[in-house]
């Protein structure tokens, strides 16, 4: 019994090796989902280990009165981004490649070329697929590393994708980015499009909440009340100053 299980296991692993050896093989023997799960887990483990080591280094340096070298802060993203790139190539042209491209956008720290390549590949091979909806959230994150192509892709999906669910995801992601840049008009326009395009209750809620939040602080809205204390501990309110022009200044000496 035991022997036959072992033999089967050997046979199985044997076939996997054979596939790996077959350089010209187009058909991959890997299960993309399992490969992604493994990549994500290995990455999470490596990041946790990096954080622990960094903490120890910082503590040791503080004790010795030294500075922690900058390199110690660098997260070990490079090898995982490379693996994701290999896997994306293995499933090139298929939806299965998209999560690996998304992984690169989500986790790259300094791998600018890989990010540029991932954006280019998404735009060239996956822009029409539904799978791209799962990675649009990461496009604003790489806007600086990938430059204009990341925003072009984002806009293309948000404005033109055939699938409404995918468009809605892109519109939500873009509205967050616009709101962060203080472009409340642009953000509101995208959120209103979301409301027109989807019937999904969760997405509608998300859009509604975001609209309330943006309008609360938008130009033309009544400023939210502030009920606080001054540095002497005396309570006062922003509305105490109605009738006067108020320049409200968030500041500090630091």
């Amino acid at each position: 019994m035991l022997r036959s299980v072992l033999a089967a296991a050997l046979l199985l692993s044997g076939s996997a090796f054979a596939a790996a050896d077959c350089g010209a093989c187009v058909v991959s023997q890997q299960d993309p989902q399992a490969a992604y799960t493994k990549l994500a887990k290995d990455f999470a483990d490596a990041m946790a280990k990096h954080q622990d080591e960094l903490k120890a280094k910082v503590a040791a340096a503080r004790k010795a009165g030294e500075r922690v070298p900058r390199a110690a802060y660098r997260a070990p993203t490079k090898e995982f981004v490379e693996t994701a790139q290999e896997l994306a190539q293995e499933f090139a042209g298929k939806d299965a490649a998209v999560p690996f491209l998304g992984f690169i956008l989500k986790n790259a720290s300094a791998e600018r070329n890989a990010v540029k390549w991932a954006v280019k590949t998404l735009a060239a091979e996956h822009v029409e697929s539904k799978a791209i909806g799962d990675v649009v959230d990461y496009l604003p994150r790489v806007a600086r590393m990938a430059g204009r192509p990341a925003m072009t892709l984002m806009n293309d999906i948000a404005d033109n994708h055939e699938d409404n669910d995918v468009r809605v995801k892109a519109l939500l992601a873009r509205s967050r980015q616009l709101a962060a840049k203080d472009d409340s008009e642009g953000a509101v326009a995208d959120l209103e499009k979301v409301q027109a395009l989807t019937k999904d209750a969760d997405l509608l809620d998300e859009a509604k909440e975001a609209l309330v939040e943006i309008k609360k602080l938008a130009i033309g809205s009544v400023a939210p009340e502030i009920d606080g204390v001054d540095v002497e501990g005396v309570g006062f309110k922003l509305s105490d100053y109605r009738g006067k022009v108020v320049l409200l200044d968030f500041w500090g000496f630091w």
Binding site: A180, E213, L217, A218, I219, G220, S221, V222, A223, P224, L238, S239, R242, G243, K244, V245, V246, L247, L248, D249, F250, W251, G252
Partner: peptide, 19 residues
Amino acid sequence: DWRVRGWPTLYYIDHEGVI
């Protein structure tokens, strides 16, 4: 509450409390 992301941040509020 005011979603301030950078300092200094300035709001110009009129006599009716409108931003």
